[in-house]
Amino acid sequence: MADQERRVFLTVGTTRFDALVEAVDRAAVAAVLRRRGYTHLTMQIGAAAFQGSRLLPAGAMRGALPDGLVVEWFDYSPSLAAHVAGAALVVSHAGAGSVFEALVAGVPVVAVPNPQLMDDHQAELARKLEGAGVLVAATLGTLEHVLATADFQGLESYVPGDPGGMVAAVDWLMGVGSAAGKK
């Protein structure tokens, strides 16, 4: 393949989110991704009821579509971080672990909250981070449109947090280190 690899990585993390997998694992979405210049679609589907890809022949774990998009899937991997870091775009459930992993790696993220979660703080986190301009939030219904139209280059780069403030406060509480000297 002549063009540079541009990978899309779909991840549900350690959760189960079949509806998100189904929303991505479709010919229309694959065509959108190819049109936008992506070369690979890798799907981490977790414990999804359907262990496979509807884009591929039954039983296949990897294959190329007629337009050239390479599609592959797996259930889990201990090295999700490597997949995230090697991606040009991450489509993720809105769990904090996966979302911040991608943000800290500097990879554009489309976060899709799971509407079936009872205590739905995922949606709040996605909304908050979208408001800060660091990621794109989507719903299952808007995902295809978002993937087709979102301006990923225009995202703000995420400035990772600094645990130093908390450490200094605990040092002060416990009366240790340089913080104790300042007291």
């Binding site: 904090a96 947090g161 600094d162 130093g164 908390m166 406060a169 509480l173």
Partner: peptide, 25 residues
Amino acid sequence: ASIFFVQWPELQAKYPRSVLAGRLM
């Protein structure tokens, strides 16, 4: 808790005894 950290200003505003000292991620 002797210190109750939160990581977002929105939450700190609602819980005045909490402490905002940055984010972990």
